[in-house]
Write a protein that binds this DNA or RNA. Structure first.
Lengths: 343, 343
DNA sequence: GTTAGCACTCTAGTTACCCGAGTGCTAATA
DNA sequence: TATTAGCACTCGGGTAACTAGAGTGCTAAC
């Protein structure tokens, strides 16, 4: 159990290191107004904190730096979320200032502004596209043998695929088919599209459209939606601004991870509620062992959720980021739900 | 005027430096089989080449490094485009291997493969969207007061904008309008859409649709197309792999430039035909003074063109890249024209 | 329990030194 | 006359030695 004084010293040490990126010494600390103890006392306490694993030294006679355990304790017990300065709030709110009507736009913009405001990297995950509901299907012929299939969803998102029209299908076949599809499939969530396509439309199509088989296969392919598309990045390069990352090799590994879509679920676990902080090696990816990631979820309506992640050095300004994400996740939930309800 | 021997030495020096990234000394050169002269002779020649400004030393007693002028001469007079190894050609051609039906997909994929093959950064510019021709316009209502406007172009590209339906417009108005628009605007290139919208449809709309004014303004906004969207990057991070870039600050500047859409026209001048090489400070942007950029254009049909750029260090493997771009621009022109003709 | 004092430790910066790769010049050589 | 061998010279990079300064841990005094 830590004493009051140890808590104070731990907190101030972490705060100072977060701010300065330099190991913190006892003299330095003793000069602060919050700390009314002599350097010697501070040294004793720091030695204890080091013994307990909260602080560590970069070398025998250096100042101290928070250990992973130190950050963790700080985040769990010492984080006093300071209110965000008005200016930051204004900038955050500017995301919504000109009436944007597309969810996607709002999220893109959030990623951008968040990264500018934090100087870290922001990753935003939009709501699961699979839950969006088909509003309209159409097929526009382009040439004799190609056409583009278009799916419009309830939130205004438009998916499209160009495909080759199988031999022996004429335009009246296509017209018939698209009518049938619209009758049967409007109102279905994209996730179920695949299934419902088979269940409900196959029999009818067979009756009305010649060569329905090939046309059907083509359509099925078009219905498989890319899932990567609703990940948005802001400030990928901000990592280069952090003094903590001086090793080009590490930067490369980190960026490689962020480029690779397959890693996103590991950085930003979907489906978790609320705010989470992962520090250093708590992250799933070894390339991120020098990073901290703060994630938070937001809701659209009752069913859909998205998430936000901020990736920065372990020496991240937790206080500030937590406050920001608190506000932003609230705002996003409110605004996007409003936009969604309107539909 | 350079002597044969000077040409040979310049060429081999540049080749060697491109390959090793180390200043080239006279001893080293003399060991090469192409060079039957003694180190002393080579030293004399190199001293002359330095006097003429083709080579420079990093310090008084170092080997030599090509100067910008040296690279320029090499590129202009000494570049013997060696045939690409079969394996590279196969990989390049793999861009087209599974029948992709969308121009955009082909270009995206080219950027990716090109960057993988070169280890440099590839930037591909698609054909001017403005020349694509409107195939169909439609408006899909989403809610009582929002709808999404969709423009399908002849190459299968789909643009969409969500907009707010002005008060007092009902669905029959919208239907009337979209019919009029389709009658009048199908076949018009996107560039002219704006103009034709005003010229041809305004009067008719006024007669048939109440409150056409606001609806019209909304539509006009939607018709302004984003121009950034047909720039595709491959291997943005490859710069980090080059030993030439060790200075984090320079890397940051360079990446900042590449992130900023507004800089693209400066990196990759549109409308120039054929292959161009810009070395070091020949580039318009000072952040790129340590880079070379090789650009080449490709054609789709008779009217449309796109361009490809490879951004690498000045010590770039010009021979190889030039051969690659030669092949790729040819292939792209051929394939994309074929796809386009089919329409 | 707290703190002043002090010896000790380690880093970072500076200087000195040397090695080796490379040069330019001169004189010998083909 | 063109080429080359020989040689003194230069400079970067690596290593060692030294110093200053910031910080520590321990002891003893308050």
């Amino acid at each position: 159990m830590l004493t009051e004084r140890q808590l104070l010293i731990l907190k101030v040490t972490v705060d100072d290191y977060i701010q300065s990126a330099q190991p913190v010494g006892s003299n330095q600390l003793s000069k602060k107004s919050e700390i009314p103890f002599s350097p010697a006392t501070i040294r004793n306490e720091m030695a204890d904190l080091e013994g307990l694993g909260f602080l560590e030294k970069t070398h025998t006679s250096s100042g101290r730096v928070p250990s992973q355990k130190g950050y963790r304790y700080y985040v769990d017990h010492l984080l006093t979320p300071k209110p965000l300065p008005q200016q930051d709030i204004v900038q955050l709110r500017s995301i919504f200032e000109d009436k944007i009507t597309e969810t996607e736009e709002v999220i893109k913009r959030s990623a951008m502004i968040l990264s500018e405001l934090t100087n870290y990297t922001a990753i935003l995950l939009g709501p699961d596209v699979g839950k969006h509901i088909v509003k309209k299907l159409s097929i526009v012929p382009l040439t004799a043998d190609t056409a583009v299939a278009i799916i419009v969803t309830d939130n205004g998102h438009v998916e499209n695929r160009v495909f080759t029209i199988p031999e022996g299908i004429n335009s009246s076949d296509i017209e018939k088919m698209i009518n049938i599809l619209n009758e049967r499939l409007v109102g279905v969530p994209l996730n179920d599209l695949h299934l419902r396509l088979e269940q409900e439309t196959m029999t009818i199509l067979r009756q009305h459209v010649k060569r329905y088989g090939e046309l059907f296969t083509t359509l099925r392919k078009a219905a498989v939606l890319p899932h990567e598309e609703n990940v948005y990045f802001g400030g990928k390069l901000n990592i280069l601004k952090q003094p903590d990352f001086h090793d080009i090799q590490k930067i490369r590994n980190l960026m490689d991870v962020m480029e690779g879509v397959q890693h996103i679920p590991l950085i930003l676990p979907v489906g978790t509620q609320g705010l989470h902080i992962r520090i250093g090696s708590e992250n799933a990816l070894s390339a991120m062992e020098d990073c901290s990631v703060i994630t938070v979820s937001y809701d659209i309506g009752e069913e859909q959720t998205g998430s936000i992640a901020i990736v920065g050095p372990k020496r991240m300004d937790y206080k500030r980021i937590v406050s920001m994400l608190d506000i932003l996740s609230g705002d996003l939930s409110k605004e996007l739900t409003r936009m969604f309800r309107a539909k």
